[in-house]
Write a protein that binds this DNA or RNA. Structure first.
Length: 586
RNA sequence: UACCCCGUGGUGUAAUUGGCAACACAACUGGUUUUGGUCCAGUCAUUCCAGGUUCAAGUCCUGGCGGGGUAACCA
């Protein structure tokens, strides 16, 4: 678990880019703070699956530790047994490892520090800065005041340390009902920072904890547990998201009031903006809703922004990391365009993925001058970007399938594909010229395209040097196999789904076309041997893989991880948008 | 209505800490191309506004304006 040998990145490299956090760390280093040590941590609560937003925090913490020769712990912040489960402890570790990050030493748990935390709490009581309060949750809330008005002191605020100590021990011993009392810090009920209005340190809660079982019936609150756990682990830089900014004074207050080892590093909290992505949501609550209400197939649905969803979708750890480490970090709440994530995959896979031919929406193409029973095998490059990927043989015959969209009864302007009288290249095969097409007498729909081929152009080159503008992909009807192919699109149809008009619902923005299943895709034979999860490029379409969940031997299911850029679609849209009067052919 | 944080191209981040606003993505032009992919070249910002300090301000000061966060015995 703590091995580092398969960490993909080299250790100790200085960051190529600087941000306010790295600048601060370098300042600390220059000033000789913390004895030149940099230590971070990733502190998830084990109450759900990780998503790409967590990925940003993971990448930040682990990358910083790596860059400065420091350490990064994985610590489960398990202080609320009512919400946490072992299942998530396992899943979270798996996801972090999949991303390619390795934490230092053993996995940590805040629950391992319960005893130390408890002792420190008694210390606060002895110093007279913590007290047992018998107010009910509702009373506590009411007396805290509001955002614009100060709170009032609890009537239990002035109990003596002796009395508090006894009460606190009885709390731990289980002598009081759940919710009967709390331990609170005695700070300032009039503070403009609500977090300093005598925050609760411990509540009584009889719930079975996933690690400590029934050993405790009092549990520390986040604020009390977090900074102290950082201190215990020697964390120097405690990075968290912006909403904890107002907690920082409390974080520091606790550190000031416990008895830290002299000379021990004092952790410092620094906040950064969490990741937002267009066309999706990154809030645990919303994601859970999508799963529970069945709008997706589960936490690993390829449309989900969860780490598991991305993995199943076909994203590679390096592509995700490239994205994560490239988005930068700042204190400004921003939203990164989903295309940046997609682009990271495309860019990587352009170099790596082998090419195959797949016809997603087939229409028959008959080569009238090709021998009825003819068959030959043509050589195709597996990856034009990588000579080392070699070549393969693709079967060719008289009847092929081509994309429906590669034929038009009459060619619009700038359309370089098949239309009556037009010549195109069949990739790695021959030039063909369209001679006609057949339609269904009932519907008028084109059911077959006819053409003749030029035998002199075998392989896709003509000796006379004539140019064809279009190259289309194809599969041999006799040799191809049929399989379902799923096309995924954004889960939501608007860039910011959280922007819901009054009375509306987030789900109003769900994209009804986020999943399209093509049941009749025709695939070249080489695709039969594709390993599950491996990405290949379907030429002219995008990067696809065999679904790891829904495929079974003999019945493969393919899906698209990300589409190729499609500048024709863009052009066509633009041409179509032009008023018909102005753009007509001469 | 209180307190805290933040405002740099369409988007996300830079700017040697006061010295010609840079990189990536997107968009748009053009070129190459047996993927309308890739690749190559080019275009795209008076740094939220108004004052002030300075030879010089994205950076420092003042005041506005705008956005976000905060009132769990959640994290």
């Amino acid at each position: 678990m703590n091995d580092r040998q398969d960490t993909t990145d080299a250790d100790g490299e200085r960051p190529a880019r600087r941000d306010f956090i790295r600048s601060m760390i370098e300042e600390d280093l220059a000033a000789g703070r913390n004895g030149g040590v940099v230590q971070t941590r990733f502190p998830p609560e084990p109450n759900g699956y990780l998503h790409i937003g967590h990925g940003k925090a993971i990448a930040l913490n682990f990358a910083i530790a790596r860059e400065y020769g420091g350490r990064c712990n994985l610590r489960f912040d398990d202080t609320n047994p009512a919400a946490e489960e072992d299942e998530f402890v396992e899943a979270i570790q798996e996801d972090i490892r999949w991303l390619g990050y390795r934490w230092d030493g053993e996995v940590r748990f805040t629950s391992s520090y319960f005893e130390t935390l408890y002792r420190w709490a008694e210390g606060l009581i002895r110093k007279g800065v913590a007290y047992v309060c018998d107010l009910s949750p509702e009373e506590t809330r009411q007396m805290r005041g509001t955002i614009t008005s100060p709170g009032q002191n609890s009537p239990y605020r002035d109990r003596t340390p002796e009395e508090n100590l006894e009460l606190f021990r009885r709390m731990r011993a289980g002598e009081f009902e759940d919710g009967a009392c709390t331990l609170r810090a005695k700070i300032d009920m009039a503070s403009p920072n609500l977090n300093l209005r005598d925050p609760v340190l411990y509540r009584i809660l009889r719930a079975r904890h996933h690690r400590t079982g029934d050993a405790w019936c009092i549990y520390p609150m986040y604020d009390w547990a977090h900074g102290q756990s950082d201190a215990i682990e020697g964390v120097t830089h405690s990075l968290c998201s912006l909403e904890f900014e107002n907690h920082r004074p409390l974080y520091d207050w606790f550190l000031d009031h416990i008895d830290l080892e002299p000379g021990a590093p004092r952790p410092r909290q620094t906040e950064f903006a969490r990741l937002n992505l267009t066309y999706t949501v990154l809030a645990k609550r919303q994601l859970r809703r999508l799963v529970e209400e069945g709008h997706v197939s589960g936490w690993d649905d390829p449309r989900m922004p969860t780490i598991r969803g991305l993995r199943r979708r076909g994203y590679t750890p390096t592509a995700v990391r490239t994205f994560l480490e490239g988005v930068g970090v700042a204190k400004f709440n921003s939203t990164v365009d989903m295309v940046v994530l997609e682009n990271a995959l495309r860019e990587e896979q352009n170099r790596l993925a082998e090419r195959r031919m797949a016809v997603l929406r087939p229409i028959e193409l008959v080569i009238e001058n090709y021998p009825e029973d003819g068959e030959e095998f043509l050589e195709a490059h597996n990856n034009p970007e990588d000579e080392g990927a070699g070549t393969r043989e693709v079967p060719f015959s008289r009847t092929l399938f081509i994309e429906r969209s590669d034929f038009r009864e009459s060619a619009p302007r700038k359309y370089h594909r098949l239309a009556p009288g037009k010549e195109v290249r069949l990739r790695y095969a021959y030039y063909v010229t369209c001679t006609g097409f057949d339609t269904d007498p009932e519907t008028g729909e084109v059911v077959r395209v006819r053409c003749t081929y030029d035998p002199e152009t075998r392989g896709g080159d003509s000796a006379d040097g004539r140019k064809v503008r279009g190259t289309i992909h194809w599969v041999s009807a006799r040799h191809a196999f049929t399989a379902p192919v799923r096309l995924y699109d954004h889960l939501f149809s608007v860039p910011n789904p959280m922007d819901v008009p009054e009375g509306g619902d987030l789900l109003d923005h769900l994209n009804p076309a986020s999943l399209e299943v093509l049941e009749n895709a025709k695939l070249e034979p080489a695709l039969r041997e594709l390993a599950p999860g491996t990405l290949v490029q379907f030429e002219r379409h995008g990067y696809f893989c065999l679904d790891t969940v829904d495929s079974s031997p003999g019945s493969p299911v393919f899906h698209r991880a990300v589409a190729l850029r499609d500048s024709w679609a863009k052009l066509e849209k633009k041409l179509g948008a032009k008023p018909s009067g102005s753009g007509g052919a001469p």
